[in-house]
Amino acid sequence: MIKLDQFLKLVGVASTGGQAKLMILDGDVKVNDIVETRRGKKLVSEDKVTVGGQTFNVGDVI
């Protein structure tokens, strides 16, 4: 498992944890097509994260 904010940094969408936090709190991030505002949301390999028009399969990254 990986936390949502850490995942955004890992895939290069956010360069810092602070930037990831702001993206999440602003409602710019979806997990499985639902807006997610919890930066500590734990992701599993079946999850899909969408941000900025890009979709990432968690299982392909971790």
Score class of each variant (00 low, 15 high):
L8A: 11
I62G: 01
S45G: 01
R39I: 11
V58Q: 07
V49R: 04
G59R: 12
R39M: 14
L43C: 11
I2V: 15
G53W: 12
V31R: 06
L22Q: 10
R38G: 11
K21F: 10
D28F: 05
N57V: 14
G53H: 10
L10T: 12
K30P: 00
T37R: 14
I2R: 02
A20L: 07
K42D: 04
M23V: 00
D5N: 15
I2H: 00
S45W: 08
L25V: 09
D60L: 12
V29E: 04
K30S: 03
N32R: 06
D28G: 01
N32I: 12
K21A: 13
R38I: 03
V61H: 04
V35Q: 09
K42P: 02
I62D: 01
G59P: 08
A14R: 00
G40W: 02
G17N: 10
V35R: 13
V49M: 03
I62Y: 05
G59N: 06
A14I: 00
T55E: 12
V13N: 01
V29T: 00
G59V: 00
V61P: 06
V35I: 15
S15P: 00
L10R: 14
D5M: 09
L25P: 00
K41I: 01
T16G: 08
Q6D: 12
S15T: 10
L10P: 02
T55L: 07
M23E: 04
D26F: 01
I62N: 02
V13Y: 15
D28C: 07
L22P: 02
V61K: 14
V35P: 08
I62S: 05
G27Y: 03
L22F: 04
L25M: 10
M23P: 04
R39E: 02
I2A: 06
G40S: 15
F56P: 00
L4K: 03
D60P: 05
E36P: 04
G12H: 09
S15V: 03
K3S: 10
K30V: 01
V49F: 03
G53V: 11
T16R: 14
L22M: 10
L4P: 04
G53C: 10
G18V: 13
Q6K: 15
K42N: 14
V31K: 01
F7R: 04
I24K: 05
D33V: 11
L10I: 15
T16S: 15
V35K: 13
G18E: 12
G53N: 11
F56W: 13
S45Y: 04
L10N: 06
E36D: 06
L25R: 12
L22T: 11
T50M: 02
T50V: 00
D28Q: 14
R39C: 00
I2K: 09
K42Y: 05
V58A: 07
D5A: 00
K9V: 14
I2F: 05
L8T: 07
T37L: 13
